[in-house]
Amino acid sequence: MNTTVIFINVFAFGCLISAFIKSRAKARQALIVALKSFFHILPTVLIIIILIGLLLGFVPQSQISKIVGERAGFGGVLIVALLGALLHIPSLVSFPLAASLLKNGASITSVAVFITTLTMIGMVTLPLEIKELGMKMALLRNGISFLIAIIIGILMGAIL
């Protein structure tokens, strides 16, 4: 048990109690929503956990750092950025994946770029975005997000 775990659980518990004080019916409804979304996300969480196990068990650290590590250079960052843009992984499970890569040879830059493109850019949801917001705005948002993801990653690599 680390402090982050305790902090998050205490915070959630505190919010839940104040919600119950404010409105019992609404709080109960929120718990049902929470339970449903927990079971919705559970398969994805398990997939990612199995993949992390396989990744760390089978792919040697030197290989990971060669593809997405410091030595991979800008090409590696670009590959990670594209991967993040194409893949459709819920953001909640992208963090354990990113952490496992970071602990096993990936650079901070590529991990930050991966998380940012993964969350900000959705190739799978692009048709829906175009339909709702129009072609120009959807393409501008995704395109500029791709650029700023790389800038954020490079800055993170320089700062940390």
Binding site: M1, T4, F11, V33, A34, I48, L92, S100
Partner: peptide
């Protein structure tokens, strides 16, 4: 590796889901 990440995840996932549920209702 899998067990370690599973434990880290399961310790916070219910709390995160409760927060999301609360916000979506309130």
């Amino acid at each position: 590796a899998s067990r370690k990440f599973f434990i880290e995840m399961i310790l916070i996932l219910p709390a995160v889901m409760i927060l999301m549920g609360l916000f979506s209702v309130f």
